[in-house]
Deep mutational scan, measured.
Amino acid sequence: TGYYDVLGVKPDASDNELKKAYRKMALKFHPDKNPDGAEQFKQISQAYEVLSDEKKRQIYDQ
């Protein structure tokens, strides 16, 4: 599964769309709200870390 799929956004998503999707998913799977969501929360955080950084995103998109 790709990072875009993890966040539920298209590859041409804007920074604002990425942030909005990340916040929505992070709230849904945060371990405090969803004890079984810890692994998914890590994936969401990693996806956002890469896609929100312009240089990392360019490398990922290659």
Rank of each mutant, 00 (worst) to 15 (best):
Q62L: 12
I44F: 02
K56R: 12
S14I: 02
D32S: 13
Q46N: 08
E39Q: 09
Q40H: 12
Q43L: 15
K24D: 15
D15T: 14
E49N: 10
I44A: 04
P35Y: 02
Q43V: 13
Q58A: 14
I44D: 01
L27V: 10
Q46Y: 10
K24M: 12
E17S: 03
E49M: 09
M25C: 11
S14N: 10
D12F: 08
G8L: 04
Y4P: 01
D53E: 04
I59G: 08
Y4I: 00
E39W: 09
K10H: 10
Y60L: 03
S14V: 03
D5N: 10
E17P: 00
E17D: 11
S52H: 08
E17R: 01
K42E: 08
M25G: 07
Y4H: 05
E49R: 12
D15V: 14
K19F: 12
N34W: 08
T1W: 15
D32M: 10
D15E: 13
E39V: 10
K42W: 09
S52F: 05
A13V: 12
S14M: 03
L18P: 00
V50W: 07
H30Y: 02
V9A: 05
P31K: 07
D32I: 08
K42D: 07
V50S: 03
D36K: 10
I44G: 00
Y48L: 05
N34T: 08
K19N: 06
G2F: 15
K42T: 07
E17Y: 03
D32G: 10
Y60H: 04
L51M: 02
Q58T: 09
S45V: 15
N34A: 05
V6A: 06
D15S: 14
G37H: 12
K10T: 10
L51G: 02
K28I: 09
Q43E: 13
E54A: 15
K56E: 05
K28Q: 10
Y4A: 00
K10P: 11
E49D: 09
G2M: 12
K55D: 07
P11R: 10
V6I: 15
Q46V: 14
T1P: 14
D15Q: 15
D15L: 15
A21F: 04
L7T: 03
F41G: 00
G8F: 03
K19D: 09
D15I: 15
D36P: 04
K42H: 10
E17V: 03
Q62R: 11
T1F: 15
K24G: 10
Y3V: 02
Q62V: 08
D53K: 09
R57L: 03
Y48R: 02
H30S: 09
V6C: 08
K19L: 14
I59Y: 11
A26T: 09
L51Q: 04
Q62S: 09
A47W: 04
K42L: 14
K10F: 07
G37T: 11
Y60C: 04
E49F: 12
K28E: 08
I44Q: 00
D5Q: 11
A13G: 01
L27A: 14
D12G: 12
K42S: 09
Q58L: 12
G37D: 12
P31N: 10
Y22C: 07
D15M: 15
I59V: 13
V50Y: 07
K42F: 10
K42R: 11
S52T: 08
D53F: 05
D36F: 11
H30T: 06
S52Y: 04
D53Y: 04
Q58H: 11
D61Q: 01
A13I: 06
E17T: 02
D12L: 04
P11M: 07
S45Y: 11
I44C: 04
E17C: 08
N16R: 12
D5E: 13
A13M: 01
S45C: 14
K19A: 12
D15R: 13
V50A: 09
D5F: 09
L27P: 00
A26R: 09
K24V: 10
V50Q: 03
K28G: 05
T1M: 12
S45R: 15
D15F: 15
S45I: 14
D32L: 12
D5Y: 08
Y48D: 01
P31M: 08
Q46L: 14
N34H: 09
Y48F: 09
K33C: 15
D32A: 11
T1K: 13
Y3R: 00
Q40I: 14
K56L: 12
P11K: 10
R23S: 12
N34R: 06
K24C: 15
D15P: 15
G8Y: 02
I59H: 11
K19V: 07
S14D: 12
E49Q: 11
R23N: 14
V50F: 08
K10M: 09
K28P: 01
V9T: 03
K24Q: 11
P35M: 04
V50K: 05
F41A: 00
L27N: 13
P35T: 04
P31R: 07
D32H: 06
Q58F: 11
D15A: 15
D32F: 13
G8K: 07
K33H: 14
Q58S: 10
L18A: 02
Q46K: 13
K42N: 08
V50R: 03
F41H: 05
H30Q: 07
P35K: 08
V6R: 06
K20W: 08
V50D: 03
A47Y: 01
Q43I: 15
E54M: 13
A38F: 09
F29Y: 13
A26Q: 10
M25R: 02
V6M: 12
K24T: 09
T1E: 07
Y60K: 06
A21M: 00
V9C: 09
L7D: 02
R57A: 05
A21S: 02
N34L: 05
E17I: 05
I59T: 09
A38L: 11
T1V: 15
H30N: 09
Q46D: 10
E39R: 07
L7I: 02
E49C: 14
K33G: 06
E54V: 15
Q46H: 12
K20I: 14
A47L: 01
Y60F: 03
A21K: 02
K19S: 08
K20Q: 14
M25H: 07
Y48K: 00
G8S: 02
G37I: 05
V50N: 04
S45K: 14
A47E: 00
I59E: 14
L7F: 01
Q58D: 10
K56N: 07
E49T: 10
K10N: 11
R57D: 01
R57I: 03
D15K: 13
Y60P: 01
Y3A: 03
G2A: 13
Y3P: 02
K55M: 09
N16Y: 13
Y48Q: 01
L27Y: 09
P31S: 06
P11I: 07
L51A: 00
P31V: 05
S14A: 05
Y48I: 03
P31H: 08
M25K: 09
L27R: 11
Y60E: 02
V50H: 06
K56D: 05
L51F: 02
G2L: 12
L51E: 02
A47Q: 03
D5C: 15
S14R: 05
D5H: 11
K55L: 09
D12K: 01
I59R: 10
S52L: 09
F41V: 02
A26D: 02
A26V: 14
R23A: 15
L18E: 00
R23Q: 15
Y60R: 02
K42Q: 06
I59C: 11
G2N: 15
F29A: 02
G8N: 06
S14F: 05
Q40S: 06
G2D: 14
D36Q: 12
K10V: 03
V9P: 00
A13E: 00
E17A: 07
K55G: 09
I59F: 09
R57E: 04
P11C: 12
Y3G: 01
A47M: 00
Y4Q: 00
E49K: 13
A47R: 00
G37A: 12
L18F: 00
I44P: 01
N16S: 14
S45P: 01
E54S: 14
G2S: 15
D15Y: 15
I44R: 00
I59Q: 13
A26K: 09
Q43T: 09
Y3N: 05
D53R: 06
L27F: 09
E49S: 11
D12A: 06
A26S: 10
Y22T: 00
D32W: 10
K56Q: 11
Q62F: 10
D36H: 10
E49P: 01
F41C: 06
V9H: 02
Q43F: 12
G37N: 11
K20A: 15
D5M: 09
P35D: 04
A21D: 01
K10I: 03
Y48V: 01
A38G: 08
Y22W: 07
K24F: 10
V6H: 04
N16K: 14
L7R: 00
G8M: 04
K28W: 07
L51K: 04
L27K: 13
R57M: 06
Y60W: 03
R57P: 03
Y4C: 06
A47H: 00
Q43P: 03
G8H: 06
P35V: 06
D12Y: 07
Q43N: 08
